[in-house]
Design a binder for these strands. Structure first.
Lengths: 241, 241
DNA sequence: TAGAATACTGAACATGCGTTCAGTCGAGGA
DNA sequence: TCCTCGACTGAACGCATGTTCAGTATTCTA
């Protein structure tokens, strides 16, 4: 139960104070982190601090509204057509538009903190990855995997994780230039990514063989269907003999 | 300046209140994040809050001392022999020893926040990666790259970034069981990692070709030495000669 | 043994936080 | 016209934080 009405579909009628607060919060959270105080957000939105609590109940409620809004906008953005190849490229496209750039910043911060949005965000891109990987496998451009779901999650987490860490290690001078930092990241990592994805790293399969030998009992053999997933179930139980 | 004496080499004589405070801080920072208050640290160390400020000047000073200590211990740990293959495996080894486990937790938190330790930490492992990659290339087990330095940084950032993000997405029930979470991560990601590193993702080199065509002027050809970085110039020049 | 320096405490201070609340303003309905 | 209700403000509350400080205990030095 929030407090009062909910816009429910962020289409029109969005210059209300409530929406201004939400947008200001997304911008400031993205630029300065979630430690940003409600007073700073209120000032940025041109309202009083009390109004924020009046509308959103608490700072946590505001955070939740921001999460929902960002996720909804990103979904809409993707539905609108652009399937710009990799996830980074899609973020890059969003970050290049002044209007949607703050959403990217907020999403990245959210990934770093690992809230609910982070989970949904990643799940969303994992689903995308499963799709384009399956397409690629069907078309013969991507090699099949022993566990497609795990691989889709892996490349997604790997990609966004590298982006996050690179960001944390090389904080940009201008914390609002998300397009610039994405561009810098792609410049730094583009070549190794392309190399690794096309050639791999090793020259023979001894590493993979060793892993398969170690993970599976030596009775069951090679590349079968993806049996179970190794991904979503957090499974603290180890599976060694 | 700090305040008084500095142990300077954490060998012996390390049960002083100062060391107790430092160890308590490392443990609590690692388990609960850097937002942990000085009073909680003081209580955990069995001293008063004032003493922390007396010894370390400020909370930031304490943080810095922790950074230095953790980095020193990790260096010592690695110097002591074990080159346990991948960085994750080495962390896993450290996290399995009760004594050094808190250091791993602190280091991971530090990576997430991106302080000075994070930079040194990554640089350290990047240097390692350059070494074992060069060895592998020389031995013929690893394919050469067009930019070995970039690749070494890439695989390091990619690996730790994925670990961090996976951690943020699947926070463990017991926030002090770093060995358990590392094991969970390896279980989830081991197979896709092995697959990607041995086979790559794509079946042909069109992706890499496209990247090379895009990044380089069409005059210069093929695999040469790691010339310059590709593309932009904003690059807050960090590690180029 | 006398004195000085240091380790250490406990209370207080200043600040910023999220949140509460009494109350004002303005629009809409009876 | 009155009345109600939601938007909205500004001051205050309670709390936790990092930090300061006067004072006490302890240890070292001469």
């Amino acid at each position: 139960m929030r407090s009062v009405e909910e816009p429910a579909s962020g289409d029109t009628s969005d210059l209300t104070a409530r929406a201004r607060v939400r947008d200001a919060a997304i911008g400031l959270f993205g630029r300065n982190g979630f430690g940003t105080g409600v007073r700073a957000i209120a000032e940025d939105a041109g309202v009083s601090a009390g109004l924020i609590l009046h509308h959103f109940g608490s700072k946590e409620g505001l955070r939740q509204s921001c999460d929902e809004h960002v996720l909804r906008m990103i979904r809409e953005y993707k539905k609108k057509g652009v399937q710009a190849g990799s996830a980074e490229q899609m973020l890059m496209a969003m970050a290049s538009v002044e209007e949607s750039a703050p959403l990217v910043g907020y999403a990245l911060r959210s990934l770093q903190s690992g809230g609910n949005l982070a989970k949904s965000f990643i799940d969303h891109f994992v689903a995308d990855a499963e799709e384009w990987i399956a397409d690629g496998v069907a078309a013969g451009t991507i090699r099949p995997s022993r566990d497609e779901k795990a691989r889709a999650r892996f490349v997604t987490v790997q990609g966004f994780g590298a982006l996050m860490l690179d960001l944390a290690l090389n904080p940009p001078e201008d914390p609002s230039d998300f397009a610039g930092m994405l561009r810098g990241y792609i410049d730094r990592m583009g070549l190794p990514t392309a190399e690794l994805y096309t050639q791999g790293l090793m020259t023979d399969s001894s590493m993979l063989d060793a892993y398969l030998m170690y993970a599976d009992p030596p009775g069951s053999d090679g590349p079968g269907p993806p049996e179970q997933d190794a991904g979503s179930t957090d499974a603290p139980g180890d599976d060694k003999p």
